[in-house]
């Protein structure tokens, strides 16, 4: 049992790297990532868990890191936008967003890349409706979602080609 405390020692893996930290129990995971770990690619767009800009993958689940406390990450594997491209090589999802002009200001983009990555791992050939449902929790104010949907469709094709 993790005993009650306002401060907790945690161990976790972030983008494959094992880390330890002491966190305030009340600290949100997103602030831990940004303020404590300096991983500023994960963004904050709201304070109600509505916008998805802070989406990361924790133990294989897509979560909003503003809706999770830092101590809840103890023992977890966290994937953030910084760990998506390997050695500077963009993934099929990232390439597709570039190719289909799926981003403008780029603020919602890390969260959307995480949501799209999560979707395609589970469902490599999604329908348009499945794509829309998969990014329902990620607000974008620039693109009208049109090119985001096209990007994810293209990513699915890119991925299929790479797998072939």
């Amino acid at each position: 049992m993790v005993e009650a405390g306002n401060v907790q020692a945690i161990e976790f893996t972030v983008n494959g790297e094992r880390r330890e930290a002491t966190v305030a129990s009340r600290q949100l995971l997103v602030h831990f990532l940004r303020d404590s770990l300096g991983m500023k690619g994960t963004h904050i767009g709201c304070d109600t868990g509505s916008c998805g800009a802070c989406s990361v993958i924790v133990d294989g689940r897509l979560v909003k890191s503003c809706m999770m406390l830092a101590p809840q990450a103890d023992g977890c594997e966290i994937e953030t936008i910084e760990g998506i491209a390997k050695d500077g090589e963009l993934t099929a999802v990232q390439r597709a967003f570039h190719e289909e002009h799926g981003l403008q200001c780029g603020y919602c983009t890390p969260g959307l890349v995480m949501a799209a990555t999560f979707l395609l791992r589970r469902n490599p050939q999604p329908s348009e409706d499945e794509i829309r449902r998969a990014v329902r929790g990620n607000i974008c104010r620039c693109t009208g979602y049109v090119n985001i949907i096209r990007s994810i469709e293209r990513a699915a094709r890119n991925g299929a080609e790479e797998a072939a």
Partner: peptide, 13 residues
């Protein structure tokens, strides 16, 4: 795009 897609943008916060 390249920086924004990798979380390497520099926003005000």
């Amino acid at each position: 795009d390249r920086r924004l897609l990798q979380g390497q943008g520099e926003f005000a916060d």
